[in-house]
Design a protein around this nucleic acid. Sequence first.
DNA 1: TTCATAGTTCGATGATAGCCGAAGCATTGG
DNA 2: CCAATGCTTCGGCTATCATCGAACTATGAA
Lengths: 231, 231
Amino acid sequence: MKAGPDISRVAALVGDPARCNMLTALMTGRALTASELAQEAGITPQTASSHLAKLEAGGLIEPEKQGRHRYYRLTDPDVADVLEGLQGIAARAGHMRVRTGPKDPALRRARICYDHLAGDLGVQMLDSMKRQKLVRQTKQAIELTGEGKRFMAEELQIDANTLTHPRRPVCKACLDWSERRHHLAGTLGAAMMDRFTELKWAARDVTPGSRVVNFSRNGERRFTALFGASE
Amino acid sequence: MKAGPDISRVAALVGDPARCNMLTALMTGRALTASELAQEAGITPQTASSHLAKLEAGGLIEPEKQGRHRYYRLTDPDVADVLEGLQGIAARAGHMRVRTGPKDPALRRARICYDHLAGDLGVQMLDSMKRQKLVRQTKQAIELTGEGKRFMAEELQIDANTLTHPRRPVCKACLDWSERRHHLAGTLGAAMMDRFTELKWAARDVTPGSRVVNFSRNGERRFTALFGASE
DNA sequence: TTCATAGTTCGATGATAGCCGAAGCATTGG
DNA sequence: CCAATGCTTCGGCTATCATCGAACTATGAA
């Protein structure tokens, strides 16, 4: 007498190493073409095509035709959240990748989680925002306070009114796999990351498929000035 | 140049239908024996034994020997959270089980999520608790307020001091797959569900493996009196 | 001790599904 | 129109892995 949605199909999709590599590559938030994803997974385009069709049927990714390219992106930030959740379990069980490159510490410090900042600095930022009362928890979601709106406008030139989105909250807590605490997701989290990039405080690592975010010397100083660790 | 924990192994574990059935059976929060899990998954004990060994190695379940029985439980509420998250994605993609029994509406209304209340009533409860300022979001977690502690003691005879646990927060937001909003997890969520059961306001469905929670007529009245929908 | 139950290990089997080569569409550019 | 590129479909190969029968260990009961 089973009931409820059938997990195993979705999980099986993520369970294949090739598909999993594609999905983690898409966690950068960027849309990638079928061939790029094939290379990312280390398989031929034919095989990739089959995998992509399955992922699409499973509702994990969405295609967008553009000329003779097919760009794929994760359908939803929620998908990224679940992937992060799985990473948390895998990390605890000690199932790290065999090739744990030198980039790993950098990944723990600051990385892209779909479209917002994660890792040590991401968690630090949300903590600091709460301490400064820029956000608070009201009914069911985190909310930007009046003080927070002023702060965003003055310090980061982000107009809070532009952040509303029909299907996505402005603020959302996203569980960080490396820190096991929350960082800020939602349209605000995305907008802030965008601004950091525009201001050249931070830049995504150039290695294709890397989620690492590198802060410049000046950028880190400015970032810490706004969201410094607990005094 | 991959980095980070390897998701695919964990996901592959969940991806097998038999193992997935076992895991969802364990989402009741109860510990089940190897044979019970075998029956739940519809496979022979030998096969189940192999699956259980894999799930244990993957860190998803934990055994506990008791006489000649081996009881298995989910290692961690976090595992249950990820499973709920996967259900959310599966539900959106329309991957419901083929045999969507008559219990389905009941499951959406009230069910056990590991050890606390989920479904419509679970979401309603957390909403109401926030409205009544029994809990609030402080730094990174939901916190029980002074008012909340009084409420718990007076209305439900729950001593807030007994709720602290070395590895588990008192309050935690858990994403509900059917409502797509949060309900209350953590030791408080578990304690409240226990109390509801003790007071005979609600009881888990007798069907083995069912996550449905049935509220008595009186129980629902009392529950609504405390955590009624928004007035 | 003897029997029954719970669980595991081993070996063989069979089906699923990932993989690639080759060929086929579709779009762009010359 | 032809060539090149991006992607998909088809067919066959292969390896993985879930499955079960049979035999074995361990605990508890008579």
